[in-house]
Design a protein around this nucleic acid. Structure first.
Length: 422
RNA sequence: GUGGACGUAGCUCAGCUUGGUAGAGCCCUGGAUUGUGGUUCCAGUUGUCGCGGGUUCAAGUCCCGUCGUCCACCCCA
């Protein structure tokens, strides 16, 4: 084989594609019911958007973006995430002018140049929502509630929700000083990479798995929030509790994108292996300004579809066995092709899924094809023993077949389909 | 970017330790059934052993390189 798919990408087809379609449809219906409307933004954006929004020093920007120059030399990047593009579209189209909270959902492919691993791909798919225009803790609770519902509507058992507040720019810079001061005392107990992190990004030390002994003794961000951030976090927890949402406080939860402020959360799944976050999100109150717009508080989350599909609970038999093809035409000779196509079109107009076998294979193969496709009925066109203008209508389940005049085929087929479905 | 395992038929894999004419199941093809699928029986084809180089009389098997897959680190959804 000369060509193989690019590293870290997947072909999705057959029953798997059908399953993806069912899940995407179910989630779109659910998010619509929550008041979120779809937004479709370009697959690529100007590189500068992601550099500014996600953060110059982040892993995503420094080593994971698919960036290229177009024919006029403009630097473009395949979107590594979709919060920045949604914000860009929101600002560019003046969607904040109506006031109130704008609610969007999106679904589609994202691209990050990472080493592929279980649950991690170079092209992967996310479904996410963004609520722009409210800074209050109630919308944070709504977002978390909606994210939990995503898994509930798909039949997942209750999943673990991790919650933290990473503060605003003010409390974060103060905490960074406190943390760095504390780290000096523990320097000997840190691994090599964490010693580097002390200088570059001390907050990241909380992600390290080797230095857990030290981590437990370090100060945590939630003890060093400013008054407003602290009030917000406490209020959010109050709302979550009163609407019956269970969560685990995780002061070590850090988001990898620079735009996050205050609320940060993740939904975890126990069987996913190392990449166990099904969904992650948080507040990004500074992003609109960073993108050159007015100050607009906002919050959102995004969920990885590959990871979701990996642990999707078994779908109902009704969903899995839904017939893909209702009627297959077996065409015995070249002269019957046009007639078959014409009859098939009439059946399709009545809402049936109809496939005409144009392979020119033997009738044996064509009926086997009909059988493999799960068709309820086969229409055999071109049998020499039948009168002109007549086809054979065969019930696949029982094998019975009878001659039917072309003009009566639609009515007879619909009648058989009704009987079959009972 | 780092580490480990793996790469053989369309698919799932055995064969490699100890070098000697490439295998199984499924699928596919033909027949039993001379235009009629599913069950059964019989027969048959599965092939650049990832790619390149090396050692050897001889390499799927040993060695080196390379590409890819999976898993972990890292990062994140």
């Amino acid at each position: 084989m000369k060509f193989a798919r690019p590293r870290g990408t997947n072909d999705i087809f057959g029953e798997q594609a059908a399953s993806w379609r069912r899940v995407e449809n179910a989630l779109a219906v659910y998010l619509r019911s929550c008041g979120y409307r779809e937004i479709r933004t370009p697959i690529f954006e100007s590189t500068e958007l992601f550099v500014r929004a996600v953060g110059e020093a982040t892993d995503i920007v420094t080593k994971e973006m698919y960036t290229f120059a177009d024919r006029k030399g403009r630097s473009l990047t395949l979107r590594p995430e979709n919060t920045a593009p949604v914000m860009r579209a929101y600002l560019e189209n003046g969607l904040y002018r109506g006031g109130g909270v704008a609610r969007f959902y999106y679904i589609g492919p994202m691209f990050r140049y990472d080493r592929p691993q279980a649950g991690r791909f170079r092209q992967f798919h996310q479904i996410g929502i963004e609520a722009l225009g409210s800074g209050g803790p109630a919308i944070d609770a709504e977002i978390i509630d909606v994210s939990i519902g995503l898994y509930r509507v798909l039949g997942f058992p209750p999943l673990e929700v991790r919650l933290n507040s990473v503060g605003c720019a003010v409390c974060r810079s103060k905490f960074r000083e406190v943390l760095t001061a504390s780290l000096i005392g523990f320097k000997g107990g840190l691994c090599d990479s964490c010693r580097e992190r002390m200088e570059t990004n001390p907050l990241r030390i909380f992600d390290c798995k080797e230095c857990s002994a030290v981590k437990e003794k370090l100060p945590v961000i939630t003890d060093h929030l400013c008054g407003e951030c602290s009030d917000h976090f406490i209020a959010l927890q109050g709302i979550l509790t009163s609407i019956g949402i269970r969560y685990v406080l995780d002061p070590l939860l850090v988001r990898g994108l620079d735009y996050y402020t205050r609320t940060a959360f993740e939904i975890l799944h126990p069987f996913l292996g190392a990449q166990n976050a099904l969904c992650g999100g948080g507040r990004y109150d500074g992003l609109a300004e960073d993108c050159g717009g007015p100050r607009i508080p906002a919050i959102g989350f995004s969920a990885g579809l590959e990871r979701l599909m990996e642990v999707l609970p078994g779908e109902s038999d009704a969903a899995r066995h839904e017939r893909e093809t209702d009627v297959c035409f077996a065409v015995l000779d070249e002269a019957s092709v046009a007639r078959s196509l014409s009859l098939a079109r009439e059946l399709r107009d009545r809402g049936l899924s109809v496939v005409v076998d144009l392979s020119g294979r033997t009738i044996k193969k064509q009926l086997k094809g009909a059988s493999d496709a799960g068709a309820a009925l086969a229409v055999i066109v071109g049998l020499a023993e039948l009168e002109p203008g007549t086809v054979a209508l065969k019930k696949m389940k029982t094998g019975e077949q009878r001659p039917v005049r072309d003009v009566a085929l639609i009515a007879e087929t619909l009648k058989e389909m009704e009987l079959t479905d009972e």
